[in-house]
Design a protein around this nucleic acid. Structure first.
Lengths: 244, 244
DNA sequence: CGAAACGTTGAATGGTTTCAACAAGAGTGG
DNA sequence: CCACTCTTGTTGAAACCATTCAACGTTTCG
């Protein structure tokens, strides 16, 4: 019974690349240094010089930037199976902050660990870089959403994307998913006020599309939502020739 | 007389890493396959599978996504010295389109070229990865701007950032820079309507801050603009220990 | 029990969009 | 060379989406 064989990261990568036993073992070794962080207290702070990256194994994290006037913009969320601070460990001091939304479990990974793993399996390296590239694509999609979608479509798109990400690690389905975010998180993510988030959610609920309540998102009309959001999961699914 | 020694990319990287003669030569070799593209016709189209990356040596390009309803969101601009399509060549089909804003000159670079160059000089590899990381930081800053800044600050911030980028390759100064963008480009970049862009520009002009006219941006009150935009060039300048 | 965090709703305000119209310059073909 | 169109820029007025302010309800937790 290998606990790591079912780690969210392994599961996610397996959806796109058939991993050999050796590669699973390499992944396992990356999960050695386990760390915990409590909800609310920043793991990495804006401007801090980077020490390590993490592989999130349980819980949710958000990365954000705060501005001089106190408003904040959430750039991305990390859910189990996601890397956290991958770029900053290789290249530069972190340019945003990371806040655990709930208590989390993560594996600490140094640049050395990562390079060693890459050397042992180029396939694994490609898979991990692919995952990083997918994260970037999500940030771009996020930017498009804030720039060119109205509040309803933005919300719908965000919830659908989140659902897809979670489904990949077995934490979500077309019917819905558990979600520890508050309406304030949604507001800071979507570039809206918390008040307006509340109104938008009410409207989507009354239209019979989706319910966001008590830490759970329920899709009542998945197709209707996809339609409203013009959600195209192509940038997430990557069915093309990733690795032969 | 080595033309490449003064290529915008060399110039940009030199601002952060002291390049040896060998490294300059490697950079030179990357510039071998020269290509031209005419303004307005997309170089790479959304969904197209990636063939090559380019190093832009002259002209401006923008990368954007179009939505089903026809609106478009410009994600980033590439100016001389910038890479174009770097990620897509390594990992996936391009998820956005690239449009030359004016006629451009670029050097085509394959994944093989790049890996060979990286093998020859790890320092160069680090410098190039740093540049890529800086581009990502700009996308994030762009997202923050659209999400949490009002139209005036967004415009001011964008013009200042562009000025800084251009200054790095000798095409801009604190007094201003040449700029081939139309107000429609600005609108699609900042998530505004073209009409409102016009109004915002007028307002900034009348406040004596900056003029955008006839293909030229003139900063009348640089400090005032920095103040309005809460512009912090830290994420561009990277004065920290990049390479010893 | 009181405080703090989160959610909810109404009313007023305001930033931005949309619609519409017009001006100026560049390029095109007759 | 002129009429024509297309692109880009400009401005006003009305409509709208979203914010702000304010108040209150609920739950959690120390």
């Amino acid at each position: 019974m290998n606990i790591v064989a079912n780690s969210p990261l392994t599961r996610k990568l397996s959806a796109f690349v058939a991993l050999s036993e050796v590669e699973r073992a390499v992944l396992e070794r990356l999960h050695q240094r386990r760390r915990s962080f409590v909800a609310g207290r920043d793991m990495v702070h804006q401007g801090q010089s980077a020490q390590a990256a993490y592989i999130l194994s349980a819980g949710w994290v958000c990365s954000y930037k705060v501005q001089a006037d106190g408003t904040r913009q959430i750039v991305d969320f990390q859910v189990p199976g996601d890397f956290l601070g991958l770029r900053s460990v290789l290249l530069r001091t972190s340019d945003h902050s990371f806040e655990p939304i709930v208590d989390i479990e993560a594996a600490e990974v140094t640049a050395g660990d990562l390079l060693a793993a890459f050397a042992q399996s180029p396939r694994l390296a490609t898979a991990i870089l692919w995952a990083a590239s997918r994260d970037e694509a999500m940030v771009v999609e996020h930017l498009v959403g804030i720039g060119r979608r109205d509040a309803d479509a933005r919300m719908a798109h965000f919830l659908l994307e989140l659902g897809s990400r979670l489904a990949l690690v077995g934490m979500g389905r077309k019917e819905g998913f558990d979600c520890p975010l508050t309406q304030y998180h949604l507001a800071d993510t979507l570039g809206l006020s918390a008040v307006h988030v509340n109104r938008v959610l009410r409207q989507l609920r009354e239209r019979g599309l989706v319910t966001f309540r008590d830490g759970h998102v329920t899709f009542h009309d998945y197709c209707g939502l996809v339609d409203l959001a013009e959600f195209d999961p192509a940038y997430l699914d990557q069915t093309g020739p990733l690795l032969k």
